[in-house]
Write a protein that binds this DNA or RNA. Structure first.
Lengths: 150, 150
DNA sequence: TATTGTTATACTCTATAACTATA
DNA sequence: TATAGTTATAGAGTATAACAATA
Protein backbone atom coordinates (compact mmCIF):
# COMPACT_ATOMS: atom_id res chain seq x y z
CA UNK A 1 0.00 0.00 0.00
CA UNK A 2 1.99 2.98 -1.24
CA UNK A 3 0.64 6.27 0.02
CA UNK A 4 1.75 9.51 -1.51
CA UNK A 5 2.60 12.03 1.22
CA UNK A 6 -0.10 14.59 1.87
CA UNK A 7 0.72 18.18 0.98
CA UNK A 8 0.03 20.84 3.58
CA UNK A 9 -0.51 23.46 0.91
CA UNK A 10 -0.85 26.96 2.36
CA UNK A 11 -0.86 25.49 5.88
CA UNK A 12 2.87 24.97 5.54
CA UNK A 13 3.49 28.70 5.92
CA UNK A 14 1.06 29.33 8.77
CA UNK A 15 2.58 29.69 12.20
CA UNK A 16 -0.68 28.89 13.97
CA UNK A 17 -0.95 25.50 12.29
CA UNK A 18 2.54 24.44 13.33
CA UNK A 19 1.92 25.84 16.79
CA UNK A 20 -1.07 23.50 17.11
CA UNK A 21 0.90 20.50 15.86
CA UNK A 22 3.78 21.15 18.25
CA UNK A 23 1.28 21.59 21.07
CA UNK A 24 0.01 18.05 20.56
CA UNK A 25 3.50 16.70 21.16
CA UNK A 26 4.20 19.08 24.05
CA UNK A 27 0.98 18.09 25.80
CA UNK A 28 1.72 14.41 25.47
CA UNK A 29 5.13 15.02 27.02
CA UNK A 30 3.65 17.12 29.82
CA UNK A 31 1.14 14.42 30.66
CA UNK A 32 3.83 11.77 30.81
CA UNK A 33 6.45 13.70 32.80
CA UNK A 34 4.27 15.84 35.05
CA UNK A 35 0.51 15.45 34.59
CA UNK A 36 0.14 11.76 35.36
CA UNK A 37 2.97 11.20 37.88
CA UNK A 38 2.30 14.34 39.95
CA UNK A 39 -1.45 14.64 39.29
CA UNK A 40 -1.15 18.19 37.98
CA UNK A 41 -2.88 19.91 35.12
CA UNK A 42 -0.99 22.40 33.03
CA UNK A 43 -2.50 25.45 34.68
CA UNK A 44 -1.94 23.99 38.16
CA UNK A 45 1.69 23.34 37.33
CA UNK A 46 2.21 26.86 35.97
CA UNK A 47 0.50 28.38 38.99
CA UNK A 48 2.82 26.54 41.35
CA UNK A 49 5.84 27.65 39.32
CA UNK A 50 4.77 31.28 39.59
CA UNK A 51 4.30 31.06 43.35
CA UNK A 52 7.65 29.31 43.72
CA UNK A 53 9.40 32.05 41.78
CA UNK A 54 7.62 35.09 43.20
CA UNK A 55 6.18 34.25 46.58
CA UNK A 56 2.55 35.18 47.30
CA UNK A 57 0.66 36.82 44.45
CA UNK A 58 -2.80 38.27 43.91
CA UNK A 59 -5.25 36.26 41.77
CA UNK A 60 -5.48 39.21 39.43
CA UNK A 61 -1.80 38.93 38.64
CA UNK A 62 -1.95 35.16 38.30
CA UNK A 63 -4.81 35.44 35.83
CA UNK A 64 -2.75 37.77 33.66
CA UNK A 65 0.36 35.58 33.72
CA UNK A 66 -1.60 32.44 32.99
CA UNK A 67 -3.77 34.06 30.33
CA UNK A 68 -6.95 32.87 31.96
CA UNK A 69 -10.14 34.58 33.11
CA UNK A 70 -10.94 35.29 36.75
CA UNK A 71 -13.76 32.71 37.00
CA UNK A 72 -11.50 29.96 35.62
CA UNK A 73 -8.82 30.87 38.11
CA UNK A 74 -11.31 30.80 40.98
CA UNK A 75 -12.18 27.20 40.17
CA UNK A 76 -8.54 26.27 39.73
CA UNK A 77 -7.56 27.76 43.08
CA UNK A 78 -10.49 26.11 44.84
CA UNK A 79 -9.31 22.69 43.69
CA UNK A 80 -5.75 23.40 44.73
CA UNK A 81 -6.79 24.81 48.08
CA UNK A 82 -8.87 21.68 48.74
CA UNK A 83 -5.72 19.69 48.03
CA UNK A 84 -3.84 21.85 50.55
CA UNK A 85 -1.40 23.05 47.91
CA UNK A 86 -2.08 26.72 48.47
CA UNK A 87 -3.73 29.11 50.88
CA UNK A 88 -5.52 32.42 50.39
CA UNK A 89 -5.44 35.42 52.71
CA UNK A 90 -7.03 38.81 52.46
CA UNK A 91 -4.69 41.62 51.54
CA UNK A 92 -3.83 43.56 54.76
CA UNK A 93 -4.64 47.03 53.42
CA UNK A 94 -7.09 46.33 50.57
CA UNK A 95 -9.89 44.07 51.67
CA UNK A 96 -11.00 43.38 48.12
CA UNK A 97 -7.86 41.60 47.01
CA UNK A 98 -6.13 38.46 48.17
CA UNK A 99 -2.67 37.02 48.49
CA UNK A 100 -2.25 33.46 47.25
CA UNK A 101 0.63 31.48 48.74
CA UNK A 102 1.92 27.94 48.32
CA UNK A 103 1.65 25.78 51.44
CA UNK A 104 4.67 23.68 52.49
CA UNK A 105 3.06 20.76 50.60
CA UNK A 106 2.57 23.04 47.62
CA UNK A 107 6.19 24.14 47.67
CA UNK A 108 7.35 20.54 47.94
CA UNK A 109 5.23 19.57 44.94
CA UNK A 110 6.46 22.63 43.06
CA UNK A 111 10.04 21.54 43.60
CA UNK A 112 9.35 18.02 42.43
CA UNK A 113 7.57 19.48 39.42
CA UNK A 114 10.59 21.58 38.61
CA UNK A 115 12.83 18.56 38.29
CA UNK A 116 10.20 16.67 36.32
CA UNK A 117 10.02 19.68 34.00
CA UNK A 118 13.77 19.56 33.57
CA UNK A 119 13.55 15.96 32.44
CA UNK A 120 10.76 16.94 30.09
CA UNK A 121 12.93 19.60 28.46
CA UNK A 122 15.74 17.08 28.21
CA UNK A 123 13.44 14.87 26.19
CA UNK A 124 12.69 17.88 24.01
CA UNK A 125 16.48 17.98 23.60
CA UNK A 126 16.28 14.80 21.51
CA UNK A 127 14.45 16.85 18.90
CA UNK A 128 16.15 20.22 19.32
CA UNK A 129 19.74 21.18 20.11
CA UNK A 130 20.33 23.48 23.07
CA UNK A 131 20.72 26.41 20.71
CA UNK A 132 17.53 25.52 18.86
CA UNK A 133 15.66 25.12 22.13
CA UNK A 134 16.70 28.61 23.22
CA UNK A 135 15.97 30.06 19.81
CA UNK A 136 12.51 28.47 19.70
CA UNK A 137 11.60 29.98 23.07
CA UNK A 138 12.87 33.38 22.02
CA UNK A 139 10.86 33.31 18.79
CA UNK A 140 7.74 32.15 20.63
CA UNK A 141 8.18 35.04 23.06
CA UNK A 142 8.32 37.47 20.17
CA UNK A 143 5.27 35.94 18.53
CA UNK A 144 3.36 36.05 21.84
CA UNK A 145 4.11 39.65 22.75
CA UNK A 146 0.84 41.48 23.31
CA UNK A 147 0.72 44.40 20.99
CA UNK A 148 1.02 47.78 22.76
CA UNK A 149 -2.54 49.08 23.13
CA UNK A 150 -3.10 51.54 20.32
CA UNK B 1 0.71 51.97 41.44
CA UNK B 2 4.17 50.50 40.75
CA UNK B 3 4.09 46.78 40.11
CA UNK B 4 7.25 44.74 40.10
CA UNK B 5 7.29 42.46 37.03
CA UNK B 6 6.37 38.87 37.74
CA UNK B 7 9.12 36.28 37.30
CA UNK B 8 8.32 33.21 35.26
CA UNK B 9 10.83 31.14 37.21
CA UNK B 10 11.34 27.68 35.69
CA UNK B 11 8.51 28.35 33.22
CA UNK B 12 10.86 30.61 31.29
CA UNK B 13 12.78 27.58 30.00
CA UNK B 14 9.78 25.40 29.17
CA UNK B 15 8.82 25.21 25.51
CA UNK B 16 5.28 24.08 26.28
CA UNK B 17 4.55 27.18 28.33
CA UNK B 18 5.65 29.56 25.58
CA UNK B 19 3.79 27.45 23.04
CA UNK B 20 0.59 28.03 25.03
CA UNK B 21 1.21 31.77 25.31
CA UNK B 22 1.89 32.13 21.59
CA UNK B 23 -1.22 30.08 20.86
CA UNK B 24 -3.37 32.65 22.65
CA UNK B 25 -2.14 35.35 20.29
CA UNK B 26 -2.35 33.12 17.22
CA UNK B 27 -5.94 32.14 18.00
CA UNK B 28 -6.97 35.74 18.47
CA UNK B 29 -5.45 36.54 15.07
CA UNK B 30 -7.12 33.55 13.44
CA UNK B 31 -10.49 34.58 14.80
CA UNK B 32 -10.12 38.11 13.50
CA UNK B 33 -8.74 37.31 10.03
CA UNK B 34 -10.51 34.04 9.25
CA UNK B 35 -12.83 32.71 11.95
CA UNK B 36 -15.24 35.61 12.22
CA UNK B 37 -15.25 36.97 8.65
CA UNK B 38 -15.47 33.58 6.93
CA UNK B 39 -17.33 31.70 9.66
CA UNK B 40 -14.69 28.98 9.86
CA UNK B 41 -13.25 27.16 12.84
CA UNK B 42 -9.61 26.26 12.87
CA UNK B 43 -10.18 22.63 11.98
CA UNK B 44 -12.61 23.55 9.21
CA UNK B 45 -10.09 25.95 7.74
CA UNK B 46 -7.29 23.38 7.87
CA UNK B 47 -9.51 20.74 6.33
CA UNK B 48 -10.34 23.02 3.40
CA UNK B 49 -6.63 23.82 2.94
CA UNK B 50 -5.81 20.11 2.74
CA UNK B 51 -8.50 19.44 0.16
CA UNK B 52 -7.39 22.46 -1.85
CA UNK B 53 -3.80 21.23 -1.92
CA UNK B 54 -4.41 17.52 -2.45
CA UNK B 55 -7.79 17.01 -4.04
CA UNK B 56 -10.12 14.39 -2.55
CA UNK B 57 -8.82 12.57 0.53
CA UNK B 58 -10.02 9.79 2.81
CA UNK B 59 -11.23 10.77 6.30
CA UNK B 60 -8.56 8.50 7.72
CA UNK B 61 -5.85 10.60 6.16
CA UNK B 62 -7.50 13.85 7.15
CA UNK B 63 -7.70 12.71 10.76
CA UNK B 64 -3.96 12.02 10.77
CA UNK B 65 -3.03 15.35 9.21
CA UNK B 66 -5.29 17.30 11.53
CA UNK B 67 -4.31 15.32 14.62
CA UNK B 68 -7.90 14.60 15.50
CA UNK B 69 -9.87 11.44 16.27
CA UNK B 70 -12.25 9.79 13.83
CA UNK B 71 -15.42 10.69 15.78
CA UNK B 72 -14.44 14.35 15.96
CA UNK B 73 -13.80 14.38 12.25
CA UNK B 74 -17.18 12.78 11.56
CA UNK B 75 -18.93 15.64 13.33
CA UNK B 76 -16.76 18.23 11.63
CA UNK B 77 -17.47 16.80 8.17
CA UNK B 78 -21.19 16.58 8.91
CA UNK B 79 -21.31 20.28 9.69
CA UNK B 80 -19.35 21.15 6.57
CA UNK B 81 -21.40 18.88 4.38
CA UNK B 82 -24.58 20.52 5.69
CA UNK B 83 -23.05 23.83 4.65
CA UNK B 84 -22.39 22.38 1.19
CA UNK B 85 -18.65 22.94 1.52
CA UNK B 86 -17.73 19.34 0.87
CA UNK B 87 -19.14 16.08 -0.42
CA UNK B 88 -18.46 12.48 0.48
CA UNK B 89 -18.40 9.53 -1.88
CA UNK B 90 -17.67 5.89 -1.31
CA UNK B 91 -14.31 4.69 -2.55
CA UNK B 92 -14.84 2.85 -5.88
CA UNK B 93 -12.91 -0.30 -4.97
CA UNK B 94 -13.05 -0.31 -1.14
CA UNK B 95 -16.59 0.16 0.12
CA UNK B 96 -15.42 0.84 3.67
CA UNK B 97 -13.59 4.01 2.90
CA UNK B 98 -14.66 7.36 1.51
CA UNK B 99 -13.33 10.17 -0.60
CA UNK B 100 -13.96 13.65 0.72
CA UNK B 101 -13.94 16.44 -1.83
CA UNK B 102 -14.51 20.18 -1.69
CA UNK B 103 -17.59 21.40 -3.55
CA UNK B 104 -17.27 24.45 -5.82
CA UNK B 105 -18.51 26.55 -2.87
CA UNK B 106 -15.93 24.85 -0.67
CA UNK B 107 -13.14 25.59 -3.12
CA UNK B 108 -14.22 29.19 -3.40
CA UNK B 109 -14.21 29.56 0.37
CA UNK B 110 -10.85 27.80 0.53
CA UNK B 111 -9.40 30.32 -1.88
CA UNK B 112 -10.75 33.27 0.05
CA UNK B 113 -9.36 31.67 3.21
CA UNK B 114 -5.97 31.41 1.63
CA UNK B 115 -5.75 35.13 1.03
CA UNK B 116 -7.10 35.87 4.50
CA UNK B 117 -4.40 33.59 5.88
CA UNK B 118 -1.80 35.50 3.93
CA UNK B 119 -2.92 38.72 5.57
CA UNK B 120 -2.81 36.98 8.93
CA UNK B 121 0.80 35.98 8.38
CA UNK B 122 1.58 39.50 7.30
CA UNK B 123 0.32 40.71 10.65
CA UNK B 124 2.56 38.12 12.28
CA UNK B 125 5.28 39.85 10.28
CA UNK B 126 4.95 42.88 12.54
CA UNK B 127 6.33 40.72 15.33
CA UNK B 128 8.72 38.51 13.37
CA UNK B 129 10.99 39.22 10.41
CA UNK B 130 10.63 36.99 7.35
CA UNK B 131 13.69 35.03 8.43
CA UNK B 132 12.37 34.63 11.96
CA UNK B 133 8.98 33.55 10.64
CA UNK B 134 10.60 30.82 8.55
CA UNK B 135 12.90 29.80 11.38
CA UNK B 136 10.03 29.57 13.85
CA UNK B 137 8.08 27.28 11.56
CA UNK B 138 11.11 25.09 11.00
CA UNK B 139 11.77 24.76 14.73
CA UNK B 140 8.12 24.01 15.42
CA UNK B 141 8.27 21.29 12.78
CA UNK B 142 11.26 19.74 14.49
CA UNK B 143 9.57 19.94 17.88
CA UNK B 144 6.40 18.39 16.49
CA UNK B 145 8.00 15.45 14.69
CA UNK B 146 6.42 12.24 15.93
CA UNK B 147 9.13 10.06 17.32
CA UNK B 148 9.82 6.96 15.20
CA UNK B 149 7.90 4.12 16.86
CA UNK B 150 10.42 2.26 19.03
C1' DT C 1 -10.65 -10.90 12.18
C1' DA C 2 -9.16 -6.30 10.89
C1' DT C 3 -10.43 -1.83 9.11
C1' DT C 4 -13.41 2.33 8.03
C1' DG C 5 -16.41 5.18 9.68
C1' DT C 6 -20.63 6.45 12.91
C1' DT C 7 -23.34 7.02 17.13
C1' DA C 8 -23.81 7.81 21.99
C1' DT C 9 -22.02 9.74 25.84
C1' DA C 10 -19.19 12.19 29.02
C1' DC C 11 -15.48 15.10 30.44
C1' DT C 12 -12.31 19.17 30.38
C1' DC C 13 -11.64 23.74 29.45
C1' DT C 14 -13.15 28.12 29.03
C1' DA C 15 -16.31 32.00 28.54
C1' DT C 16 -20.06 35.34 29.74
C1' DA C 17 -23.37 37.31 32.87
C1' DA C 18 -24.97 38.31 37.23
C1' DC C 19 -23.67 38.77 41.88
C1' DT C 20 -21.13 40.17 46.59
C1' DA C 21 -17.84 42.87 49.03
C1' DT C 22 -14.83 46.34 49.45
C1' DA C 23 -12.75 50.90 47.99
C1' DT D 1 -18.76 54.34 40.62
C1' DA D 2 -14.92 51.20 39.99
C1' DT D 3 -12.39 47.06 41.31
C1' DA D 4 -11.47 42.07 43.23
C1' DG D 5 -13.27 38.03 43.36
C1' DT D 6 -17.28 34.42 43.20
C1' DT D 7 -21.26 31.82 41.52
C1' DA D 8 -24.15 30.03 37.93
C1' DT D 9 -24.59 28.52 33.54
C1' DA D 10 -23.59 27.37 28.92
C1' DG D 11 -20.79 26.31 24.89
C1' DA D 12 -16.80 24.46 22.24
C1' DG D 13 -13.66 20.87 21.73
C1' DT D 14 -12.32 16.33 22.27
C1' DA D 15 -12.12 11.54 24.11
C1' DT D 16 -13.67 6.69 24.82
C1' DA D 17 -16.77 2.88 24.09
C1' DA D 18 -19.98 0.49 21.53
C1' DC D 19 -21.70 -0.17 17.04
C1' DA D 20 -22.45 -1.08 11.65
C1' DA D 21 -20.64 -2.15 7.34
C1' DT D 22 -17.10 -3.89 4.41
C1' DA D 23 -12.77 -6.40 3.46
Amino acid sequence: MTTRPTSLGPLAEIVGFHLAQATVVAEEMFERHIGAPLDLRKAEFSLLMLLLANGPLAPKRLAQCLAMTAPSLTLLMARMEARKLLSRERHPTDGRSQQVAATPAGRKLAERSTSAALEMEQEMGTRLSAAEHAMLIELLRKAATRKPAA
